[in-house]
Design a protein around this nucleic acid. Sequence first.
DNA 1: GTCTATATCTGGATAGAC
DNA 2: GTCTATCCAGATATAGAC
Lengths: 236, 236
Amino acid sequence: MDQWPHDISQAAFRKAWPLEGEPLWQRVYDTHRDKMQIKNLHIALPNLERIFTCTFQLANAKGFQAMSLRDLSRATGISMGGLYAYIGSKDDLAAAIEEVLRRTLDDVMSERKVLDLAPVQRLRAIIHGDLYMNDIMHPWYYFCYLEAKGLSREQREAAMQMELKFDARLLQTFEDGVAAGLFASDALALLAANTTAMLQQWYLKRWKFARSGTRVEDYARFVLDTTLRNLGYRPA
Amino acid sequence: MDQWPHDISQAAFRKAWPLEGEPLWQRVYDTHRDKMQIKNLHIALPNLERIFTCTFQLANAKGFQAMSLRDLSRATGISMGGLYAYIGSKDDLAAAIEEVLRRTLDDVMSERKVLDLAPVQRLRAIIHGDLYMNDIMHPWYYFCYLEAKGLSREQREAAMQMELKFDARLLQTFEDGVAAGLFASDALALLAANTTAMLQQWYLKRWKFARSGTRVEDYARFVLDTTLRNLGYRPA
DNA sequence: GTCTATATCTGGATAGAC
DNA sequence: GTCTATCCAGATATAGAC
């Protein structure tokens, strides 16, 4: 099995998963198409970008509920009436954000190339991949975390299932490592939840990392080292 | 120095810090007195309890912004006009919640008896104390975390300072341990932030702990063990 | 496709009776 | 101390001109 080396650089991730610029807004358009009246992509994509970007800024500053569509209209430069050509309703806008992130995350998490790696390398790939995605789509994660209460019951449920699925994927990797005699611990489930929490810190505590000047690669290494240490792993 | 044994049971904590029932509402009354028109304690305390408890329920279900004072009026059984004898405004209610939690947390964190302990015992006391307080005042923490965006700039700043202060207290304990030759690590600050994050999980991911049936004492042990392991501590 | 103007409603807050 | 009735700002959403 030629599982190693596996390129875990941020550059490689960005190349494998285009989650910024036009490909992203195309993705938004695709999942959101039925709610929109605008069919011309050359007009729709830039406006979608303005609408979503400004929503993130405003929701980040005062919360989504407290942000009015008048605020959004002013920030985007699109009139109130104009906005409704792009969204079905205000709630619909929040729902679209959650849906785009969840579908994207689901795609990235299902990547076969990662799932086939040996435990330590797989862990390394999962941690780096998740942090890079966190970093690139930071506003989306942050929004979904803080505004979850405003989403529909189905969407809240789906978000919770997504986190459990992530935990389960880590746990499976840990257990594979235990079976291979690499890891040992009597609290694997709690350790998996802790690794998930460490990763979430990257978008929840961005202010703290900015303060200390920690870069994403540094933090990725810290999370990997810490997780492996907690699993009792000793490099050969 | 008679620093050990130090009682770290939940019962001992509850006895040392009465954070439930009448003492709690008395505390709320004291910090909130100037905004209230009701002076009779026998009437004020039970109504404060109803108002704050229902606010937590409603804010937890749909978010504080989305909760209307009419909702709150219905839930508490107190009329709209009646509510305004207890709060200055809706925003004022949120501010009061943050202020009560922050003052209480500040009291608990400043306890001298804990600060004088040797590093490992101090760490144990900090972790247990914080988790017990998390557990008892769960709705308050959860509210402050998720509704922080709606607070004033000063209050958001104060909440951030509080977290940095908590990190710093952990870091100081770690450094004392390093100086005593007990601990060793090249990422003390990140480890402190991680311990803080682990503790916050107790109120942020309550659904997950409920699912797995993890009790607060079990989790306290896990957090302590994990932190000590990451600090390279080996019991004598 | 985008705008202005407007319908409609909800929510915070207050006045004043009891 | 508590309630009812009411005021009014500001929000979502839509209709229809251009």
